[in-house]
Design a protein around this nucleic acid. Structure first.
Length: 559
DNA sequence: GCCGTTTTCGGCCCGACTGTTTTCAGTCG
C-alpha cells in the first residue's frame, strides 16, 4: 500500500469523524496524520511501528492504524464509521465545495442521502432553504455534481497506464505468436481515457476463455470482433480482434479520432490497406503521422505539405524547471532532488521553485528563509558542478495579478514561475486580466499551470486563452506544460496557437518528491499532442544555453 | 490523538476568501 492510499484513508476517517461530530481535536489529529503520512520521505510499508511513531504528528495509536491498514486494508475505527454512513453521503465527500458540515445539514435537515437526490434538490431550488446555504452555494454544488457526473467512467491516462501495461504483458506472454498493440485514445496519449483499447490478432475464443478463467475480470459485452470487460480497479478495456493481414489498416482506423479519419476518407474512401501504417499514409499521399497527433486538427494538412513537426522526446530534455523541496511542501531535500536529477535522470540542471510567502498552507518561503535556501544552493552548486541548481520561485499570483515579493527580491531569482493558487472562482474577464497583469510583470519568466484545472476533479477557471497567449508572446513569457497527470495544463489543444505566436513552452513536472520528476513523461505526451518540437521547449536547452537565456531575460528587465 | 512537560494531564487551534450572515462558519490550497 502506498503512502498516498494510507493518507487517503486517514483523510476519510477525519472527514467522517467530523461528520459525526466526534472530538474536534482527535479529528484534527487524524487530518494531520494524513498530511504527515503523505509527506513521509520513505514508504510506510518499509517502516516499523517504532519508526512510524517517532515521526512528528504520528503517535503510537496512529502507527498502529497504519500497520492495520497495510496488513488488513483498513482499521476498526474507520470500518465502524464507514458502516454507519450511507454510500451516497460518502460520495458527497468527494464533491468539491462540500465538506462534512454542509453534508451534515444536507443529510439531517433536508433528508437527502444520495448525490442524485442532491442534484434534484438543487434544480428544485430547495437547498437555499437550509441554514448556511444560499443561491450561490446551491449553484456551485449543482455545477460540481454535474462535473463529477461527467467524469464518471473516465480515467486519467496515468491511472489507465498502471493497469494497461501489465495486461498487455500478459496478453503478449499468453499469445506470443500474435500481434498486439494499444490503440484508440490510449495510443493517442489522451489525457483522459474512457477505455484502454488493444488491437490483437490472437483468436477471440481463446482470449475470451483466458478472461473467463480469471476472477479479476468481468465481461461486459462480446461481439464478433470485440470484447469489452472491466478489471478489479474498474478500468475499462476494449479488445479489438483482427487478422495479421488487416492489422495495419485496423490499427490506423482504431487509432485516429473521428475527425482525423474523416479527413483521411476525404482523400480516399474506403481507405487503402498496406503492410504498415506508413505504407497506408504513403498511399494517401501523406507522410507518417504520429499517433499523438491524430486528432483531426491540422496534422493531415501538415502531412500533405511535409510540414509535420519533429515531435519532442523525453530524451530531448536537458533539465527540469519548477520543482519543490522541503523548503516548502516538497518531500525530498534540495540535495536529494538534485542528485536524483543528476544521477538517475542524467539531467544537467534543476530549477527549484518552492512556494512563495503567501502560500502559508504550503510552508511558503519568507524572505529570510529564501536567503537560507540560496546559501544552500550555492554550496550544492560547488559540490555538484557542472550540474547546476537554478534559483527559482513559484510566486503566487495574488488576486489583483501582482506577484508575491517586492522587486528587489524578485530580481535576485534566476527565474520566476508565476501561478494562481487561490481565489479560483473568478469570472473569465477578471481571471484573464489577473493573468495578463502577472505576465506583464518584468520579472515573470514563466506562467505556471495556466487554468488551475485538476482533470476529472475540478474545472479550471475560465480564460480568454488567445489574450493570455498573445500577452505571453508580447512579453516573451514562457508557458508551462504542467506535467502532473492531473493537470497537463496548458492543454494541448492550445499549444499550437501558442507555438504559432512564437511562445516557448516548458515541460515542468512540478515535482514534490524525486519520483514526481518522472511525470515529465506525461508532459512529453501532452506536448507531442500539441505538436511541440525540441527547439521550442525551454528545458530542452542545455545548461549553458539556458543560463544565457535567463541572463538575457534579466538584462531586459533592468532596461 | 499528539505533545511536552507541569511525569499524568491540559492545551492544541493555518489564514484568506466566500457566502451567508448581521458577526461568522465552512472550505480550500
Amino acid at each position: 500500500m502506498e503512502n498516498k492510499a494510507i493518507a487517503k484513508a486517514f483523510k476519510l476517517c477525519s472527514q467522517l469523524m467530523e461528520l459525526f461530530n466526534e472530538n474536534p481535536f482527535r479529528t484534527k489529529a487524524m487530518a494531520s496524520a494524513s498530511f504527515k503520512i503523505d509527506k513521509l520521505p520513505f514508504p510506510a510499508v518499509d517502516a516499523s511501528l517504532e519508526e512510524l511513531s517517532e515521526q512528528p504528528g504520528i503517535g503510537k495509536s496512529t502507527a498502529d492504524k497504519v500497520l492495520s491498514l497495510i496488513h488488513n486494508g483498513s482499521f476498526p475505527e474507520l470500518d465502524k464509521l464507514i458502516a454507519k454512513t450511507p454510500t451516497g453521503i460518502m460520495e458527497m465527500l468527494s464533491i468539491k465545495g462540500l465538506g462534512p458540515k454542509k453534508i451534515q445539514i444536507i443529510w439531517h435537515d433536508l433528508g437527502i442521502e444520495t448525490v442524485g437526490e442532491l442534484l434534484y434538490a438543487c434544480n428544485e431550488n430547495r437547498l437555499v432553504e437550509a441554514k448556511g446555504f444560499g443561491l450561490k452555494t446551491q449553484e456551485e454544488i449543482r455545477k460540481a455534481i454535474e462535473f463529477a457526473n461527467a467524469a464518471q467512467g473516465l480515467f486519467l491516462y496515468a491511472k489507465a497506464e498502471k493497469v494497461a501495461m501489465p495486461f498487455m504483458q500478459r496478453l503478449a506472454t499468453t499469445f506470443p505468436d500474435a500481434m498486439h498493440t494499444f490503440t484508440g485514445e490510449f495510443r493517442r496519449k489522451c489525457e483522459i481515457i474512457s477505455s484502454v483499447d488493444i488491437l490483437t490478432s490472437a483468436p477471440i475464443a481463446e482470449v475470451a476463455q483466458m478472461l473467463a478463467n480469471d476472477d479479476s475480470y468481468t465481461l461486459l459485452e462480446q461481439f464478433d470482433a470485440s470484447i469489452q470487460f472491466t478489471d478489479v480497479y474498474a478500468g475499462k478495456y476494449q479488445l479489438l480482434f483482427t487478422s495479421a493481414k488487416e492489422f495495419a489498416i485496423d490499427l490506423l482506423i482504431s487509432t485516429g479520432s473521428d475527425a482525423h479519419l474523416q479527413q483521411l476518407k476525404a482523400l480516399q474512401d474506403p481507405l487503402p490497406n498496406g503492410q504498415t501504417e506508413t505504407e497506408i499514409y504513403q498511399a494517401l499521399g501523406l507522410k507518417y503521422i504520429a499517433p499523438e497527433l491524430r486528432e483531426g486538427l491540422r496534422e493531415v494538412q501538415w502531412a500533405k505539405e511535409d510540414k509535420l513537426p519533429e515531435l519532442i522526446n523525453f530524451a530531448d530534455l536537458k533539465g527540469t524547471l519548477h520543482n519543490h523541496s522541503t523548503y516548502s511542501d516538497g518531500v525530498h531535500s534540495l540535495a536529494q532532488m538534485a542528485s536524483y536529477c543528476k544521477d538517475q535522470l542524467g539531467l544537467e540542471y534543476l530549477g527549484i521553485c518552492d512556494h512563495s510567502k503567501t502560500a502559508v498552507y504550503a510552508n511558503g518561503l519568507s524572505i529570510e528563509r529564501l536567503a537560507e535556501q540560496w546559501k544552500e544552493i550555492d554550496l550544492l552548486n560547488e559540490q555538484l558542478a557542472p550540474f547546476k541548481i537554478f534559483k527559482g520561485i513559484e510566486s503566487d499570483i495574488l488576486a489583483d495579478g501582482s506577484l508575491d515579493y517586492p522587486d528587489e527580491i524578485l530580481q535576485q531569482f534566476d527565474f520566476v514561475v508565476a501561478s494562481v493558487h487561490s481565489n479560483l472562482r473568478m469570472d473569465e474577464e477578471k481571471a484573464t486580466q489577473r493573468l495578463i497583469k502577472a505576465i506583464e510583470n518584468p520579472y515573470t519568466t514563466m506562467l505556471g499551470h495556466p487554468t488551475g484545472r485538476l482533470l476529472l476533479s475540478r474545472a479550471g477557471y475560465p480564460l480568454d486563452f488567445k489574450k493570455v497567449i498573445d500577452a505571453c508572446a508580447a512579453h516573451a513569457v514562457v508557458i508551462e506544460i504542467n506535467a502532473n497527470p492531473l493537470r497537463l495544463d496548458l492543454d494541448w489543444r492550445w499549444q499550437q496557437y501558442a507555438l504559432e505566436k512564437g511562445v516557448i513552452l516548458s515541460v515542468n513536472p512540478d515535482a514534490h518528491r524525486t519520483e514526481g520528476l518522472l511525470d515529465m513523461h506525461y508532459g512529453i505526451y501532452a506536448a507531442r499532442k500539441g505538436g511541440l518540437s525540441a527547439p521550442h521547449c525551454l528545458n530542452a536547452l542545455t545548461k549553458d544555453e539556458i543560463e544565457t537565456y535567463f541572463s538575457n531575460r534579466r538584462k531586459n528587465n533592468t532596461k
